[in-house]
Structures are given as C-alpha cells and as structure tokens.
C-alpha cells in the first residue's frame, strides 16, 4: 500500500518545529508501524536527508519507549496497543497519517518525535517503592496474599510508564500513571505500612513536575496501551483522604 505521512519535525528543544509531508510507498500490511517508519527513513537517508527521530527499543509493547501521537491519538486508534505493536494492516491504501510527539508541558520535545519523560522517574523517586533493604527480608510465603489482591496489584503494576495517559489528557495530568503505583503498593501488605507517606509524596511530586490536575475526563484510560483502569485513580483519592486522617498511633 501507499500512504502519505505528515510528520512533526523539530531539530532541537529550542526549534519551533512543523509538520512535513512524506510518501510511504510499497508498505506491506504485515509490517509494524515502526517498520514502516524505518522504510521511510531508509528513503530519506538515500536522499541525503535527516531521518525522522523517534524513541523505540523493545518493539514488543513492554519497554514503554515508543511514544507517538497518530492521527490525534497517543499510540494510534487501536485499543490497548503501543505504537510498536500497531500493524499496517490497520491502515488502508491511500491513507493520510499524522504523526506527532507526546504533547505536555512536563514532556519537552527533544527532537522530532522524541520527548523528555524524566518527570515520570521523578514521581517514582518521590515514593514509588517499599523501603525494604537488600537481604534480611521474610520468606516469600510468610505473609499470605490472596489471589484477588495479588491480581489487583498486578493489574496496576502492568503500567509500562509510556506517558500516553498524560499525552491524552486535556490537563496533562499524571494521575493514572501515579495512581497505578500507589494502588499496587497500597493493596499489598508489603507496601501498606508506607501508604500514607507514599501517596502524599507522590501527589506532591506530580505538582512539582508540572503536570496538571485530574478533572475526570478519563481520556487516559482510553489511551492506555495496557488497559490501566481509572478505578486506580479512585483508589488513589481514597488513599489520599486516608492519609489526612491521623490514626491513634500517630500523634
């Protein structure tokens, strides 16, 4: 099939950037979206032009590196799919495709489709862990965890940290991403002791990193390639409220 691409080109963080148009010819429906871009880049190189820069690594939907807004939607229109897992059989001959980077104040564009997502690491550093030491922990079966709880934690833990939820949100809120970690750890007995401290620190980090507020648009869930549910945002809100109420052992 033959396609027309409109791709965001931006030389560097200070550059203004604009959409450029390129043909993508002889694309096979078995190719992945990124393999299609590889083809376009090979053509550009042969013509002595600068290939399109985009983030990618595992190309199997798990590392969270790939990050493109395709026809206005982060990761494209197919549900629960990262860009790297999107295949060209989802497109038709003659289609026009718009490809842009994640857009959010906290994700400055570095070049073309590549953005800086270190703000997500900063949120994790603020409290996305249980403070256990290496060694000196209890046997893995010492504390039983019922299957429903383990499954709930796993549902939340599937987040790949791609940032699509933020790119999709009209407020650029990092609530879904953050809530997934808060919910996973709060649900597990190993994370529960620090739950109050964690939810306070992580919600503060969201503000410090320049993300917006959550006003319940739920665009995040629709864009999330891993199907992370907005129920975790509700859980975060409950955990946050709990953290405001002192318990009898806290003075």
């Amino acid at each position: 099939m033959n396609l027309t691409l409109h791709v965001w080109r931006q030389k560097g963080p200070q550059d203004k950037g604009k959409l450029e148009t390129y043909p993508a010819n002889n694309i096979s429906s078995d190719q992945s979206f990124l393999e299609m871009l590889d083809d376009v880049n090979e053509e550009l190189i042969k013509k002595g032009q600068d290939p399109i820069a985009f983030d990618h690594d595992c190309r199997e939907g798990i590392c969270g590196m790939c990050s493109q807004v395709i026809n206005g939607r982060p990761h494209g229109h197919e549900e629960r799919t990262t860009v790297c897992q999107l295949h060209m059989r989802q497109f038709d001959d003659g289609d026009e495709i718009f490809i842009e980077p994640w857009r959010a104040k906290a994700f400055p564009v570095q070049k073309d489709l590549i953005v800086d997502r270190s703000a997500l690491d900063a949120i994790m550093q603020s409290g996305g862990y249980s403070s256990c030491h290496t060694g000196g922990v209890a046997d893995g079966n010492a504390i039983l965890i019922g299957k429903p709880v383990a499954d709930y934690a796993m549902d939340a833990a599937e987040c790949i940290g791609c940032g699509a939820c933020i790119a999709a949100c009209p407020n650029s809120s990092a609530m879904l991403f953050t809530s997934a970690k808060v919910a996973q750890l709060a649900a597990l007995p190993q994370g529960e002791p620090e739950a109050k401290k964690r939810v306070k620190a992580m919600t503060q980090a969201i503000l410090d990193e320049g993300f917006g507020n959550c006003t319940n648009h739920y665009e995040c869930e629709a864009a999330c390639p891993k199907g992370i549910s907005v129920k975790f945002i509700a859980k975060l809100n409950r955990e946050y409220l709990k953290s405001l109420v002192p318990t009898s052992t806290e003075s």
């Binding site: 256990c132 383990a150 597990l188």
Partner: peptide, 22 residues
C-alpha cells in the same frame, strides 16, 4: 531463594493461589 523473598518484599505481584501462596 533469597531473590524471591527480596522481590516479594518490594511488592512484586507474583502469581498466587487462592490460599495466598506463591
């Protein structure tokens, strides 16, 4: 064996059975 214990302590959600065992 220490590895499994370590990961559980970190909150790695390993598969469990209905009785709560790994």
């Amino acid at each position: 064996n220490n590895i499994i214990d370590q990961c559980v302590a970190q909150g790695v959600p390993f598969a469990r059975d209905y009785a709560g065992y790994l």
